[in-house]
């Protein structure tokens, strides 16, 4: 079996190694109600993408280190100076100045509550979360936006205080490395790989 594709960046260029695509033969799709006449074919494809987080990379690295990073516009000339963003925005949406990075971990632990939620029984293909998925949107005092995430322990309810947890062991470096639990949850209740 050939090496599954992986990549690194050296001298600002991607260096890829292994297979990034895997070929399979098409098969015919026939109409059984019409003497098996050909209608089409299947088109198998398995390929690996490269994706850059760009200026948001610190946020995703931060999750693996147990940190929730947000940003703030500090441009003195901006009408909305001082506005704090979570999700992390690279640039202020108003003045387009580069935002200042903030460590919001303590804010999230002390001032986050559920704005709304949803328990989802179904998922799309390639889902990695256990079902049912408890989507929650977290509002933080002093923050202008409302973060979407998911609740791993407890029952969601509007207004409930929630605490962030982080997948520091074997992280995926995606937004799923961040999850939440209701206030009062103990460390031994957390899912594998997650900690406060």
């Amino acid at each position: 079996m050939s090496l599954y594709g992986n990549a690194k960046v050296k001298n600002w260029r991607y260096k890829i190694k292994g297979n990034f695509h895997f070929s399979h033969s098409p098969s015919p799709i026939r109409n059984v109600n019409d003497n098996g006449h050909l209608l089409g074919i299947t088109k198998p494809r398995h390929m690996i993408y490269l994706h850059s987080y760009g200026g948001e990379a610190p946020f995703f690295e931060g999750l693996s280190q147990g940190k929730l990073l947000g940003t703030r516009c500090d441009n003195p000339g901006c009408e909305y100076k001082g506005t704090i963003y979570q999700p992390y925005r690279i640039y202020c949406p108003d003045c387009l100045a580069r935002c200042t990075e903030l460590d919001m971990t303590e804010t999230a632990k002390n001032r986050g509550y559920i704005h709304t939620f949803m328990t989802c029984e179904r998922s799309g293909a390639f889902n990695t979360l256990d079902k049912p998925i408890k989507f929650i949107n977290i509002e933080f005092e002093g923050v202008s936006t409302i973060l979407m995430s998911y609740l791993s322990v407890g029952e969601p309810k509007i207004g409930t205080r929630v605490i962030p947890i982080f997948k520091k062991i074997d992280p995926s470096y995606t937004i799923t490395d961040l999850s939440w639990v209701v206030e009062g949850t103990q460390a031994d209740q957390l899912p594998d790989g997650f900690s406060f």
Binding site: M118, C120, R122, S123, G124, A125, F126, N127, T128, L129, K131, I133, F135, M148, S149, Y150, T174, I175, T176
Partner: peptide, 8 residues
């Protein structure tokens, strides 16, 4: 990545 389900 959160479930790959727009309905959610």
């Amino acid at each position: 990545p959160l479930g790959h389900i727009y309905t959610g």
